[in-house]
């Protein structure tokens, strides 16, 4: 479950400490039940990525309360925050694959950080790479992969540890229509298995094709929540 109560976000500007930075998010409140699916839509610069960062604990709110998977984010230790992050899968807009690692090792990373055994890692990683259609690219490094392939590796990494919450920021941005549909099948399949999903996009065609409740954000404010 994800719950925001009057959440504000203001980015710190270390180089300009005296200046008041504008709020990236203002008074955000919404709730997504366990196993829910939400589209997060809005124009570029509206604050979609900022909101997702708060969900996957990459930023602290200036004020307000955030509950992630039943835990109040502000009240947990650094160690517990790290353990909570392991239950959240994130697909970044810019993939964020590690260039020195192979596709296999990139996907295996969350499981290795969670200290899973290599036998289980091997089974799960090869299965998920088969699922995203890259079973023949195990040893390719990111610079040897196309944009679409890199996006699929990033998605595989986000879901390989079977997260309870999946957060995706423009996950179909580099995919063609067929791959985008394949990805949405994957995400909805995970959602049916109980994973709570939040997908940010400005691709309204995709949203129309996969009907689900929406969170609409404009100028840092939530203007519509279902």
């Amino acid at each position: 479950m994800v719950k925001f109560e009057d959440v504000w976000l203001k980015y710190r500007h270390p180089a300009r400490q005296g200046d008041a930075a504008p709020e990236a998010l203002r008074g955000i409140s919404f709730e997504i039940p366990e196993g829910g699916f939400r589209w997060l839509i809005g124009p570029s610069g509206a604050g979609k990525t900022s909101l997702l960062k708060l969900i996957y604990l990459a930023e602290h709110p200036a004020k307000g309360r955030i509950d992630i998977l039943g835990t109040e984010a502000a009240k947990i230790s650094r160690r517990d925050a790290a353990l909570l992050r392991r239950r959240i899968g994130v697909v970044y807009q810019d993939f964020r694959l590690l260039p020195q690692l192979s596709a296999y090792d990139n996907v295996a990373l969350p499981m290795r950080l969670a200290r899973r055994n290599e036998t289980q890692i091997h089974a799960d990683v090869t299965e998920i790479l088969r699922w995203v259609g890259l079973e023949n690219r195990l040893h390719a490094r990111p610079d040897e992969l196309s944009g679409g392939e890199q996006q699929r590796i990033a998605i595989a990494r986000a879901v390989v540890a079977r997260p309870k919450l999946l957060v995706a920021d423009e996950p179909t941005g580099n995919l063609d229509d067929e791959q985008a549909h394949r990805l949405m099948h994957l995400i909805t399949a995970l959602n049916r298995l109980g994973t709570t999903v939040v997908v940010a996009t400005h691709n309204m065609g995709l949203v129309e094709g996969w009907p689900a409740p929406r969170l609409t954000i404009e100028h840092g404010k939530l203007t519509h929540a279902e």
Partner: peptide
């Protein structure tokens, strides 16, 4: 990135 993926400070 690995911090966001759940790496502990200890790791």
């Amino acid at each position: 990135l690995i911090h966001a993926l759940g790496a502990l400070d200890d790791d």
